[in-house]
């Protein structure tokens, strides 16, 4: 680990001011991914600003039935919050499908949004990686890429976003609240928050340097059944090969509302609007779900070892929709 200086921020404004004042500063909250990467010198901040004790841990009701998750709310507290469990069970399920209890007790909502890929070559500092060293090449292309992206990848990077939580948030139309160095805050729809790799896979989100995530805001969830399904080799404590988050509301034999998001398939949690469009207003049926899954994966491209994930994602999605659509 490279040496760095450390300070604990007194409040959110002080945190962003501190970040603006220092070159190569990073915020540290739970630290469960940042320290993991710093230990391997994949992340090399010169200065750490500890935001773990900022008063951003509350989960508050929003007017209109939404929920505001403080960026420092722990993954475990969020998953266990009665309002999350009853109004956003998809989020609770997704959080609980991720990592381990110990990690969830430490990991924050904001940090989870920013966790980086688990691509083996990103972690292997002896292998080329455009994310680690822009322009260095991508070892996963033509390499062992069983866990890699089938959607939205580029010739520069085929890594996936590992978050389960973000898949649920994507389906729930969450917004991210950011505080800038000037003290101004802005909101970004999660749908616009993540970037595809294209030619700059090292730039993963629209967060500006020094900008702090202060909250995730969930709008009122539409009526409907919510379900998260994660597929993996090990029964627990493993990142997804493929995951599916769905919300499905069927009224009088017609799909009134549907949300579909996929995890483990792309550089970002993948919202499958095409699948939603296929289903909305249609009578629920396995054939309709199959058509939706085909639409969601229509542009999927396998890279060899991960070819199976296309079929796997479709099957998992059809199954999740079938379960969510049961009367």
């Amino acid at each position: 680990m490279k040496a760095f200086t450390y300070e604990r921020a007194a409040d959110a404004r002080a945190a962003v001011a501190a970040a603006a004042a220092r070159a190569n500063a990073k915020f540290i909250a739970g630290g469960t991914n940042l320290l993991d990467l710093m230990r391997l010198e994949i992340e090399q901040p010169a200065h750490l600003i500890d935001i773990s004790r900022l008063p951003l841990q509350a989960i508050d009701d929003e007017p209109g039935g939404g929920l505001r998750l403080g960026a420092q709310a722990r993954n475990s507290d969020t998953a266990a919050d009665p309002r999350v469990r009853t109004r956003y069970p998809l989020l609770s399920q997704a959080l609980l499908a991720g990592a381990s209890a110990q990690l969830r007790n430490k990991a924050s909502i904001g940090g989870n949004l920013l966790q980086r890929t688990r691509c083996a070559y990103f972690y292997d500092t002896t292998a080329p990686c455009n994310k680690r060293t822009p322009g260095g090449g991508c070892a996963a292309i033509g390499g062992l890429n069983r866990n890699h992206a089938i959607l939205g990848a580029s010739d520069a990077c085929i890594a996936t976003n590992p978050s389960d939580m973000a898949v649920a948030l994507m389906a729930l139309d969450a917004e991210v609240e950011l505080l800038g160095a000037t003290g101004a805050s802005r909101r970004v729809a999660l749908r616009d928050f993540y970037l595809l790799p294209e030619t700059t896979p090292h730039i993963e989100t629209v967060v500006h340097p020094g900008e702090l995530i202060t909250a995730v805001v969930l709008p009122r969830a539409p009526a409907g059944r919510q379900l998260y399904r994660k597929v993996r080799d090990r029964a627990s404590y493993e990142f997804a090969l493929v995951s599916v988050g769905v919300l499905l509301a069927v009224e009088k034999g017609t799909v009134e509302e549907v949300r579909v998001a996929l995890g483990g398939v792309a550089h970002k949690p993948w919202r499958a609007l095409e699948a939603e469009a296929v289903l909305r207003g249609r009578a629920p049926s396995v054939a309709a779900y199959q058509a939706a899954a085909d639409a969601a994966l229509a542009r999927a491209v396998g890279r060899g070892h991960n070819d199976f994930k296309i079929e796997l994602a479709k099957r998992t999605l059809v199954d999740a929709l079938t379960k969510a659509g049961r009367p």
Partner: peptide
Amino acid sequence: HGQCGACTVLIEGRRINACLTL
């Protein structure tokens, strides 16, 4: 790296991985 749990301790009664925190 938070991948095994051998370093689990309790902070304010909560279990965490002591390796992934300063």
